[in-house]
Structure formats: C-alpha cells, structure tokens
C-alpha cells in the first residue's frame, strides 16, 4: 500500500497544530483513507473523551480537542515524543493534574456516562476507580503490608481480616506473594526495583479500581523486571482496563491492543496497535515509530 506523504511543518501551539492536522486529515479522507478513530459501543467503552481540552494556569491549551473512546479490558498505549502531553492526558483521567498545578479544562471525560470534571464528582472516589502507577517505583517507606493496606484503610476498611485478605489477594495478583514468602512486615525498601514496582501496582489494585493508569511503569527497571511488569499488565487486562504511557516502542507493540499517537498536544492517530505499527496513516506517525525523531 503506498503511503500518502504529507509534511507537517512548524507550529506553535497545540491549537494551531490541530488546525493544520484537521486539514491534513480531510485531505487524507478525500483520498479514501480510513482514518477514523476506533469506535466502541457504550458497553465496551470505559473512558470517553469528548472534545477535551486542558491547560495549566493561564498558558495556552496543553491538550487540544481530545475526542476518543478507550475500550474496556484492553491495554491502550499512549506514545509520542517528549513533551507532547502523554502524561497530561493520562493524568487527566484521574484528575492528578490539578494536584500539581492550577488547571482549566473544556469538554468532558466520561466514565460510566458521568463527566468526571463536573463539580458533583468526588475526586477521592474517582481515584479509587482510576488507580495510578508512577514512573519510578515509589513505595512508601513502610512495611510491605502497610504499603498495600494504606488505600483500603483510608477508605474505611478497618477489620484486620478484611485487610489481610485484601493485602494477600493484591500481592497474589501481582505475583509477589510467593516471592516474599509471607515476609509482609519487612520494609518495602528491602525489595528489588522490579518487586517495588509490582508492590506499587499491588497497592493500586488494593483499592479495586476499574482502570489502571501507568506512567512509563518500566522505564526505571532492568530488562527482566520490565518483562515481568509487561507480563503482569497483560494478565491484569482481564480484570482492569490499562492505559499506559511508554517511550518504548517495542513495549507498546508487545503488550498493547490499541495505541494512541500524540504530537504537540493533539491525538494524531489512534488505532489497533498492529495498524499503527505496520501501516500508519500519517508520515509523522511513521517517522516517530521508525525512530526518526523522538
């Protein structure tokens, strides 16, 4: 299949870029390309972005007009060069952006049909539904048990047996329970980097979210631990929807079902992962994937 060569040149703000992108998209469509974002029925959809914009303080929009649906029980990878807004997009799903700076938004993000940016929504409840795993393994400087029990305790689970079972099942589902052989009261810093990251995933699972957001969860780990984490994410897909930001193209190709390619605050391409990696529609996507910039 011959590819349409189109240059996307210099631009300043995501807004300006989006205008150019629209033109190019129309051109593509007129030439008969299938460049619609994947569509899912309401039942299949976990998160829906509706013309979502976000900006920090008084600066111009950081993300411009995000309009897509994330399917249930799939792994969706967000890829793109540094500073394109991947992490901002990820964090806007559990509203962590506003914990770091003042933000303003436009448009909606729907989870179970409810706009999470509406004033009625409780941020704390939202975060029990949408868990997050950070880039570096960052367990609390406490025992393994306390690390996992922190979330459930916070949300009112006080009975020891219940907590025990939550801790246990969470550790089991990340495959750490056997490895630590019941040394639950050991300090979390005694674990290896990969184990620490899995502990962090277990900690997130312990509050029973529907969605797990992972911000480059394996970028600070060695290859073996990375492989374990990837394996784990693939397993978790059965129970959770996973959205992952990654810089690692192979990782995205290996584990994700769908991929979102972002550039300059705009979602350029969103499709099944194999399509993105094998026959990207835009030259920009192809350049990025083949490593010509990043």
């Amino acid at each position: 299949m011959s590819k349409q060569k189109t240059e996307i040149k210099e631009f300043n703000t995501p807004e300006e870029f989006y205008r150019k992108y629209l033109k190019i998209r129309e051109e593509h469509r007129s030439k008969g390309f299938e460049n619609q974002f994947p569509n899912f029925s309401d039942k299949e959809t976990e998160v829906e972005f509706r013309n979502f914009h976000i900006a920090y303080e008084e600066k111009p929009w950081t993300l411009y007009n995000i309009d897509l649906k994330i399917p249930k029980n799939k792994i969706v990878a967000i890829i793109g060069p540094s500073g394109c807004g991947k992490s901002t997009l990820l964090r806007s799903i559990n509203r962590m952006n506003e914990e770091m700076a003042k933000i303003r938004t436009q448009g909606e993000i729907l989870i179970e049909g409810e706009n999470i940016y509406s004033p009625k929504v409780n941020k704390m409840r939202l975060r029990t539904q949408v868990g997050m795993v950070f880039q570096k393994p960052q367990p609390f400087p406490r025992s393994i048990y306390e690390n996992i029990a922190f979330g459930p305790k916070l949300h009112g689970i006080k009975k020891k047996e219940q907590l025990d079972r939550i801790v246990e099942s969470s550790l089991q589902s990340v495959g750490l329970f056997e490895e630590i052989e019941g040394r639950l009261d050991d300090h979390a810093y005694g674990l290896s980097g990969g184990q620490q990251q899995r502990l962090c995933i277990a900690r997130t699972i312990a509050v029973r979210p529907q969605i797990i957001l992972a911000d480059e969860p394996a970028s600070a780990l060695d290859p073996k631990s990375t492989y374990q984490i990837e394996d784990l994410l693939l397993k978790l897909k059965e129970d959770f929807t996973v959205v992952i930001v990654t810089h690692n193209m192979q990782q995205a190709a290996r584990i994700s079902d769908y991929s979102i390619f972002m550039y300059n605050g705009v979602v350029v391409e969103y499709d099944k992962t194999e399509n993105i990696f094998e026959k990207p529609v835009y030259e920009l996507t192809e350049n990025y994937i083949s490593g010509r910039f990043g």
Partner: peptide, 20 residues
C-alpha cells in the same frame, strides 16, 4: 499470619466503595 485459603480469592472479592 494470613490463612492460605487463597485459591478461590479473586481480585474483586472486596469492593472498596467508600460511602458518599
């Protein structure tokens, strides 16, 4: 220590659902 009747433990056994 924790009892090991774990085989039938599922991830969603306990729903953490704080009251409004």
């Amino acid at each position: 220590m924790i009892q090991t009747e774990v085989d039938n433990l599922k991830v969603n056994d306990f729903i953490v659902n704080p009251a409004t």
